[in-house]
């Protein structure tokens, strides 16, 4: 199971990196979103995907999945959402101000 998910994560990372390297601003944002999905899955996988109950303790003790990676991912989801929202608005403003979404054209002025 872990092998499968890890391979899946590898594919997601590949596609995300490919998108990050493109010249189009929107594609870069899409790339960051996909990259964070990939990493969340990776954290979960690394925590182990062994069978077990949902980590909710009600009454008697049993076998549960590891809760710590889940807590970490929960934090990461919120942060990546904040960053994605910020990037999106940044892209929007950049496009408004400069009229371009071509990262190659958005090089700023040559210093000197």
């Amino acid at each position: 199971m872990e092998t499968l998910i890890t391979l899946l994560v590898g594919v997601l990372v590949t596609i995300a990196v490919y998108l990050l390297l493109s010249k189009n601003m929107i594609r870069v944002i899409l790339g960051t979103a996909i990259l964070s999905h990939a990493i969340h899955l990776l954290i979960l996988t690394m925590g182990g995907l062994k069978k077990g109950g949902v980590p909710l303790i009600e009454g008697e003790a049993g076998s549960y999945t590891d809760a710590l990676p889940q807590a970490l991912i929960l934090t990461a989801i919120v942060i990546s959402f904040a960053v994605t929202a910020f990037l999106l608005v940044l892209a929007y403003r950049t496009y408004k101000e400069t009229g371009s979404d071509n990262l190659d054209a958005l090089r700023g002025v040559n210093d000197e």
Binding site: E2, T3, T6, L7, V9, G10, V11, V13, T14, I15, A16, V17, Y18, L21, A38, L42, T45, M46, G48
Partner: peptide, 18 residues
């Protein structure tokens, strides 16, 4: 090529780490 390289790296490191 770069993207595939990164993807392979992540996969291999994840597999051996696990």
């Amino acid at each position: 090529i770069v993207a595939i390289g990164v993807g392979i790296t992540v996969t291999l490191v994840a597999l051996s780490a696990h």
